[in-house]
C-alpha cells in the first residue's frame, strides 16, 4: 500500500488547553478519510499541523515521502489544502486568484492554462471567473477554495469542511468529485455531516478531546451501534464515542 500521508504522535498545546494529544493519521493512496469529531476536538488543529501551518509540539509528518519538518518545500508541494472557512483575498478576482496559486505552485505557460481550465471545469467556476471574491456566495467561495487546492494536482488533499455552505446539489457534486479523485489520491476531509462519511469515505477517524477514539470503515462504525437502534445509527455511535468521556470526567 502506498502511504501518502503519515502523521505520527501529533501533539499541540495552546496554553492550558491540550488541543491535540497524540494523534496518528496515516492515509494511503486510494483512501478518502472522513475526519470527524465535535467542535473543539482538534480536527482543524491537526490539519493545520499536517499542512505545515502550525508546528506540532511533538510528532512527525511525512507527505508523499518527504518529512515536513526537514523538507517543508517538497512536503508542502505535495499537498492541496482547503483551510477552515476557505479564506481568500476579498478584492481579488477569481481568475487572478487561481492564476496566482497556480504560478506560485510552479505551474507556467500552457501547462498552467490547461490546469486552470480543468479545475474551473471540475468545480464549475466559469460564470464567476471575472468577479471579485468578496461578491461570491458562500457556495462559490468554498468551490474557489477547492479549486485552489486542486490546481497543482497534488497526491494529498486536506480539506477542512469542503461541503460547508453548499446547497444539496453542490454537495452532491463535490462529493462525487472527491470520490473520483480519491481513487488516485490520499484525501482527508473533515465534516460534521455523518451521512457524508457513508457517501464518500472509505475510512472514518473520529477524534475527541485531542485523541483518536475510532479508526475504521464506515461499516465498522455503524456496526458499533446496538441492534435495537434502527434510525440514525451513525449519529448514535458518534454520540457514544464523543460524550462518554465527558460524562466520566
Amino acid at each position: 500500500m502506498d502511504t501518502f500521508l503519515e502523521a505520527r504522535g501529533l501533539k499541540k498545546r495552546f496554553g492550558a488547553i491540550e488541543a491535540v494529544a497524540g494523534v496518528d493519521l496515516v492515509v494511503a493512496r486510494g483512501e478518502v478519510v472522513g475526519f470527524l469529531g465535535p467542535n473543539g476536538a482538534g480536527k482543524t488543529t491537526t490539519m493545520r499541523m499536517v499542512t505545515g501551518f502550525l508546528e506540532p509540539d511533538a510528532g512527525t509528518v511525512r507527505v508523499h515521502g518527504h518529512d515536513l519538518a526537514a523538507d517543508p518545500l517538497h512536503a508542502k508541494a505535495a499537498i492541496g489544502y482547503l483551510p477552515e472557512g476557505a479564506p481568500v483575498w476579498p478584492d481579488m478576482r477569481v481568475r487572478d486568484f487561481l492564476r496566482f496559486v497556480a504560478e506560485i505552485r510552479g505551474l507556467c505557460g500552457a501547462e498552467r492554462d490547461e490546469r486552470l481550465e480543468e479545475v474551473v471545469h471540475l468545480v464549475h467556476l466559469k460564470p464567476v471567473l471575472g468577479q471579485t471574491l468578496e461578491t461570491l456566495s458562500k457556495g462559490f467561495r468554498r468551490r474557489v477554495g477547492l479549486a485552489q487546492a486542486l490546481v497543482h494536482d497534488p497526491p494529498v488533499l486536506i480539506l477542512d469542511e469542503p461541503t460547508d455552505g453548499l446547497d444539496p446539489n453542490q454537495k452532491f457534486e463535490v462529493r462525487e468529485l472527491i470520490r473520483r479523485m480519491g481513487e488516485e489520491k490520499a484525501i482527508v476531509l473533515s465534516t460534521h455531516i455523518l451521512e457524508e462519511v457513508e457517501a464518500v469515505c472509505t475510512r472514518a477517524v473520529i477524534v475527541n478531546r485531542g485523541r483518536v477514539v475510532f479508526d475504521g470503515t464506515p461499516a465498522e462504525l455503524e456496526a458499533k451501534a446496538p441492534a435495537d437502534v434502527t434510525r440514525n445509527r451513525l449519529d448514535h455511535v458518534f454520540r457514544q464515542l464523543t460524550t462518554s468521556e465527558v460524562e466520566a470526567a
Binding site: 499542512t51 505545515g52 501551518f53 517543508p72 499537498i79 483551510p83 477552515e84 479564506p87 483575498w89 505552485r105
Partner: peptide, 14 residues
Amino acid sequence: RLGTIELLMTLPVR
C-alpha cells in the same frame, strides 16, 4: 485577520 496567512504559509515557498 482574513485567514489568508494560512494559504500563504502552506504554499511551497520559503
